[in-house]
Structure formats: structure tokens, C-alpha cells
Nucleic acid binder design. Structure first.
Lengths: 215, 215
DNA sequence: TCAAGCATTGAGTGATAACTTAATTACGCC
DNA sequence: GGCGTAATTAAGTTATCACTCAATGCTTGA
């Protein structure tokens, strides 16, 4: 029971205080839902199945999470809050604001940070990705979060790199798209096609990215 | 009615002869299913809804497609057969076998071909992508198709480029991953985030890819 | 023209889905 | 230790799901 809270995958829920005001049984529901949603998708999972796996009565789901969608939201919301901005706050402080002497340092820092985050939350990321493809409103939330602090910070940083003639003169949005494509490719390969996340493979990808975007 | 067959989106079904041995009403079912699956996903769509949109009785779906999953397979199978190998056959003949003088020619040809294919089949691609994320067996089919003619052809071509010192000395699988990441990024941006497929944006991405993988 | 056979219909079926609710249990506080 | 509140249960309830099937319509070739 307490083991659940020590699961690395659940770190993000502790950080975003989702577990506060939750009983042990309710945490079990959340954890069971994450497991099953990640495996076979939200729409293919019944609340009865979740309750059975969590070892609680089905009604307990609805007294805490209101409805099935509410349970999904409890899983997805921390991701939307974290995938760009929340853990990004920490990231901006420790990484982005320090001066990068080379483009390689810049991308090495960003990509490794993001890959580590995504790999450490693979089940939740799977749920999030699937739902993002289905649900326009989830995509809209991403766009909004993206337009906030994350965008202005990284935008600023890219302009600084352009001023130093370190990075190619493309629209920042194009630069970011290439950056996230490479990161996404690594993650998709890992999550869905069983490819390794070995350090040298990631270094190769970072090397390619640096070449792609150097001036 | 006949209009359906002129829909660009359905080209792939004509090419793979899916429409043969189908009545007009059965084609309507297939087309309606594509529309609704693409919009809200397979699991969230009822057979009744498909029948209503197609203007037929619900039972008609089951007499032709056996069950709901059979209907999905009729949509997905041509994609699996085409996304790598089938349209790739044509592509290999007209493009891959001619000698490329520069890496830019090589990627320009490949990326534009793939982007055009994916953009011309956006609804079906959306269905395919969603189902790929859910269904292990679909992923397995991709891996198998990938390991066939497509792989040996492109592998050969990449080795030739390496011999000419035109391309970076990474594993071919790593090169392909970077290539497909960039292509995928363009498509995801277009299909799910409403970004344009303008020629100069694609040229920029190709330019970045060439730099990334040049020796 | 008509019979045979395939396409099509739509009412019907059992299963299962999400969700409700009234009763029961557990828990914190004086 | 008992009282009030919140957590939990389990047996419903209603709706909807995929799918069946017997009856009907349509086409085609002799």
C-alpha cells in the first residue's frame, strides 16, 4: 500500500499534490486506473475492472472522482501542468538561465532533461498521448500552456542564441518543432517499439540536432 | 454516391482493391466509419451511429464486415500495406533507384513523397495512429512490414551514401529514426495542431535534416 | 417471367456499461 | 466510549452496446 507512493512513476502526483485529500483506497483506484488505461486505453477500460484491480467497491470511484472522466482528468491534469511548465520551472532555473557557451550544451541539457522526465513517467505519458490524439480540448490546453511562461522563456533564449550567431535563422517555432520531433522520436521508439534509451544513442540524436540547427 | 469514389482520401482503397466485391451501401458504411472513427475514435463510436450516417440498416455492417473490429481492419489493413511497402514500391522504382548526387536530393525526394502521402490520407492516418498506440498487434505488423522489402532497399541505399561519404556514420536505424522523427513532426503538427504544410516550411525541415545527417 | 440467391432490413436479445443510492462501517474528536 | 461526519459498500437502475435472425427486397440469368 505504502509502496504505491514510493513508485517512481507516481513522483509527479506527489509533486503536484494530487494525493493530498485522498484516502489509501482512493490512491489505489488512481494507481489501478493508470495501469489499465496505459495498457488498453481509457475507452476500453470499465470502472468495474478498475475497482476490482484496486480492491475496492465500484461506487468508491464515483464518490471521489465524480465520474469516469473525472478519474482520467485526475491523471492527465498533472501532466498538462508538468510536461511543459511545472517541471520546466525547475528546469528553467537550473538550466536555461545559466549561460550556454555552445549549442551542444544547450540541447544536451534540454533533451536529456525531457527524455528523463518522459521515461520516468511512461505509463502516464502513454495515457496522455492517446487522449491527446482523441480529445481536441486536451490539445487546446497544451497549446495554452505552451503559449505561457514556457514559450516566452525559451523564445528569449533562442533569440539570445541567434544574436550570438550560434543557431540557425529559422522561425523559433520551426526550431522548436525540430527539437521536439527528435525528442518525440526517441520517446515513441522507446515507449511503443521497445528501443533502448542508451546514453550513446541519445548522444547521437543530440549530435544530429546540434548539426541540424547550427549556423 | 459515386462521389465517394472520387474522394482523394479514398484513393488508397481503390489502389488496394478494397472496394472490389462491395456494394454501394457497403462503401457508404466504410466511408461513414472513416469519418466518425477519425473524429472521435474507434472505441467511442457505435455501429448504430455509423449505420445512421451511412443511411443503411445496422445489420448490414455485420453481414459484410463480420463485426465492428472487422470494419476497423478493413480501414487499417490498406494503411499497413501501404504506409511502408506498397506505395513505397512505386516510390522505390521512381525515386530510390535513381542515383542521388546530393544528400539534399535524397531527403527532398523521400520527405516530400511521405508528407504528400500522409497528408492525402489524413483521416485514415489518424485512425491508424490512434489504434497503433492502443494495439500491440498493429505495432507488430508495422515492425514486420518494416523489416521486409522497405528495410533492405533503404538499408542498401544508405550504405551506398555512406560509401560515397555523403552521410554520417551512424547506425542506419538511427539515421532512419531521425528521418522519420522529422517527417512525423511535420505530420503531427499538421494533423493535430493545425500547422500549415507550406513548401518553404517543409524545405526548412529538409534543410535541417540534411545538415543533421551530412558527413 | 420467374425462380434462385444475394443484399438489406429492423425489431429483438443478452451483456455490460456508467452511475445511483440507501445502508453500513470506520474514524477523529470531545 | 460514544457521537457525528466522512468513507465505503453492494445491490440496484437505466441506457446503450455489439450482434442475431427471420422476413423482405432486389437483381440476374435462363
Amino acid at each position: 500500500m505504502v509502496n504505491y507512493l514510493e513508485d517512481v512513476e507516481l513522483q509527479i502526483f506527489k509533486e503536484t499534490h494530487v494525493f493530498e485529500n485522498m484516502t489509501t483506497k482512493q490512491m489505489h483506484i488512481l494507481v489501478a486506473a493508470i495501469d489499465i488505461f496505459a495498457e488498453k486505453g481509457y475507452a476500453n477500460t470499465s470502472t468495474k475492472e478498475i475497482a476490482t484491480k484496486a480492491g475496492v467497491a465500484e461506487g468508491n470511484i464515483f464518490s471521489k472522482f465524480k465520474n469516469k472522466r473525472g478519474l482520467l482528468n485526475a491523471i492527465i491534469a498533472p501532466i498538462i501542468d508538468s510536461i511543459f511548465p511545472a517541471s520546466m520551472n525547475d528546469f528553467i532555473k537550473t538550466r536555461l538561465t545559466k549561460e550556454y557557451s555552445t549549442l551542444h550544451d544547450f540541447f544536451d541539457s534540454i533533451i536529456k532533461d525531457r527524455v528523463a522526465f518522459l521515461a520516468a513517467n511512461s505509463k502516464i505519458i502513454k495515457i496522455f498521448v492517446s487522449e491527446m490524439l482523441y480529445d481536441q480540448s486536451v490539445r487546446q490546453q497544451i497549446i495554452e500552456k505552451f503559449s505561457g511562461a514556457y514559450w516566452s522563456n525559451i523564445n528569449q533564449e533562442l533569440n539570445r542564441l541567434k544574436a550570438k550567431h550560434l543557431i540557425v535563422e529559422l522561425d523559433n517555432i520551426e526550431i522548436l518543432k525540430i527539437m521536439w520531433s527528435i525528442t518525440g522520436g526517441i520517446i515513441i521508439g522507446h515507449l511503443y517499439f521497445g528501443q533502448s534509451l542508451s546514453a550513446d544513442k541519445i548522444d547521437h540524436a543530440i549530435g544530429a540536432l546540434v548539426k541540424a540547427l547550427s549556423r
